[in-house]
């Protein structure tokens, strides 16, 4: 459950994300693009990161999930640029298989993933 002001962990290899995580200033959610305004697995969110606004996709949640859906130890996100393509070239942690359901929107994100669980 990601509300406004929730901190996320950037799990791609984009320079912006890496730098923000190293400085100990992980991005904050300021808007969730769904009706509830509460983010779940696979939702698009708007985050503030190092003074910029960026869109991101939630690829892992700490929240208890349904059976057969993985639950992670941190709330993970992948940063997107303005045209909706991922900023980095690789995702460094496993992402759930369930995200394949959201193709073709997610197809570029799935292409840069290294592992699925």
């Amino acid at each position: 459950m990601l509300r406004n002001q929730t901190r996320l962990r950037v799990v791609d290899n984009s320079a912006l994300g890496k730098q923000a995580m190293l400085e100990g200033k992980p991005p904050k959610v300021i808007r969730v693009y769904n009706k509830l305004d509460v983010g779940f697995l696979g939702d698009k969110v708007l985050v503030t990161i190092k003074g910029q606004m960026k869109k991101a996709v939630v690829v892992g949640c700490v929240q208890r999930q349904k059976a057969f859906v993985p639950r992670f130890d941190s709330n993970n996100c992948v940063l997107l640029d303005d045209s909706g393509n991922p900023l980095g070239t690789r995702i460094l942690v496993p992402i759930p298989n369930l995200l394949r359901k959201l193709r073709p929107e997610m197809s570029k994100l799935i292409a840069i993933a290294t592992k699925f669980v």
Partner: peptide, 12 residues
């Protein structure tokens, strides 16, 4: 733990 990230899956 996969790639340093804790993963849990519940199975029915």
């Amino acid at each position: 733990i996969i790639d340093g990230e804790g993963v849990e899956i519940r199975y029915d």
